[in-house]
């Protein structure tokens, strides 16, 4: 795994006088932050989260004390909370967390280094991986182009697709039925 910790939430401003805070979840489903077990800040202090309203959470520190005072809650503003990567549910078959893919080494079928996966593009027209090495390559994340994803070895095998460049005369063509 690239980083055993994954940022799942950031503590925001205090809410009310009883120690509740605004919590900015970084997960696709905010409710899941509660189920990821104890979260840790960058220094390793443990916190437990309990949702008390939409975007409002109650925080319990590592010793089991609930933050019940606004002043204490104010000291936690901007604290980033991380979960262990293993706490995330296992993805389906052929499904991968972006956090797992990013940072993987990319090699071609002969074993030649192509760089590192830096971005996973997903804009509704198929997923693609951006590889950065000696040059930047973007390949569709398909079985044809990425036949092997080895999570244990942190390596993807990439078959570069042929690229065809269109050289048109840019003439306007109207109807196409």
């Amino acid at each position: 795994m690239s980083d055993p910790r994954i940022l799942v939430a950031t503590i925001g401003r205090p809410h009310g006088v009883r120690g509740l805070v605004r919590l900015h979840a970084a997960t696709s489903d905010a409710a899941s932050v509660e189920t990821l077990g104890p979260l840790h800040d960058a220094q390793g202090h443990a916190f437990t989260i309990r949702w008390r309203g939409v975007g409002i959470a109650e925080i319990t520190d590592g010793e089991g004390r609930i933050v019940a005072d606004r002043d204490v809650a104010a000291k936690l503003v901007n604290v980033e909370l991380f979960a262990a990567r293993d706490a995330l549910p296992e993805p389906d078959e052929d499904e991968f967390y972006h956090a797992d893919l990013i940072g993987m080494a990319a090699v071609d079928p002969d074993g030649t280094d192509l760089g590192v996966v830096t971005v996973v593009h997903d804009y509704g027209a198929g997923v693609s991986l951006e590889l950065r090495g000696a040059r930047t390559i973007i390949v569709p994340f398909t079985r044809a182009c990425v036949p092997k994803v080895d999570l244990a070895a942190r390596r993807v095998t990439v078959v570069e697709p042929d690229e065809i460049e269109l050289e048109g005369d840019l003439q306007l063509t109207g109807a196409a039925s």
């Binding site: 994954i6 799942v8 052929d94 956090a99 997923v127 994340f141």
Partner: peptide, 12 residues
Amino acid sequence: TGHSSDKKSKRG
């Protein structure tokens, strides 16, 4: 790219 940390994608 968003803040979502548990984003996942399926291989096509």
